[in-house]
Every structure is written in C-alpha cells, then in structure tokens.
C-alpha cells in the first residue's frame, strides 16, 4: 500500500476536484425548481460522490470479491428498508 507515488497522487487530486465540482452542482441545482425530482437529483449526486470516495479514497477499486461483497450487501438492505416503508406510506 504505497500511498505516495506521483501517479496515485494525481488520481487523488482528480477525485478531490470531482467531489468539489459535484458539491457545487448540488448547490446550484437546488435553486432550480424540479419538484420531486430535486430530491432524486440530490441523492443521485450524493451517491456518485460516495462511490468516488469508496472506490478511490477507501481503495475499494482493486479489492477482492469478498471485500466488494461486504461493501455492496448493506446497500441492498438500505434499499430494502426504504422500499418496504414506502410500500406502506405511499399506499395507505
């Protein structure tokens, strides 16, 4: 795990720039009224940012299948609780 090589440092700066850009985009989009879509867009951007952090800063990229499994499984459960709850609240 050599964190220091020039190539990987460039990637980190690149990811950092992308994160900042996406943050600016989030703020700008919030001024446009898209109705319910505002939430969807905000969540989409947030997910993209989280993925970048997980892939590069947390080194998920290049990890073994087991680690990927442990990273992805909780997302399923998160989706499950949202889906199950909406199934109730949206259809009462």
């Amino acid at each position: 795990m050599s964190h220091g090589s020039a190539g990987s440092r460039r990637i980190y700066y690149g990811v950092f720039a992308a994160l900042i850009t996406l943050t600016v985009v989030t703020v700008m989009v919030s001024y446009i009224d898209l109705g319910l879509l505002n939430v969807a867009v905000a969540l989409l951007i947030a997910s993209a940012k989280a993925s970048l952090v997980a892939l590069f800063f947390m080194h998920l990229k290049g990890e073994s299948g087991l680690v990927w499994g442990f990273a992805l499984v909780p997302i399923f459960f998160l989706a499950l609780i949202i889906f199950g709850t909406l199934l109730d609240t949206q259809l009462r």
Binding site: F77, L80, G84, L87, D88, T89, Q90, L91, R92
Partner: peptide, 21 residues
C-alpha cells in the same frame, strides 16, 4: 428474517398491500 418486519404492524394502520406482502 430481514423481509418480514411488517408482521408486527398489521393492526397499526399499515397499507393493505404491505400487510399482504
């Protein structure tokens, strides 16, 4: 075990579809 939590809430006014599932 993760798919059945709603069975504690059948009388709590949950939506009929959720109850059934």
């Amino acid at each position: 075990g993760f798919l059945v939590w709603g069975h504690h809430m059948f009388t709590s006014g949950m939506s009929p579809l959720a109850n059934t599932i």
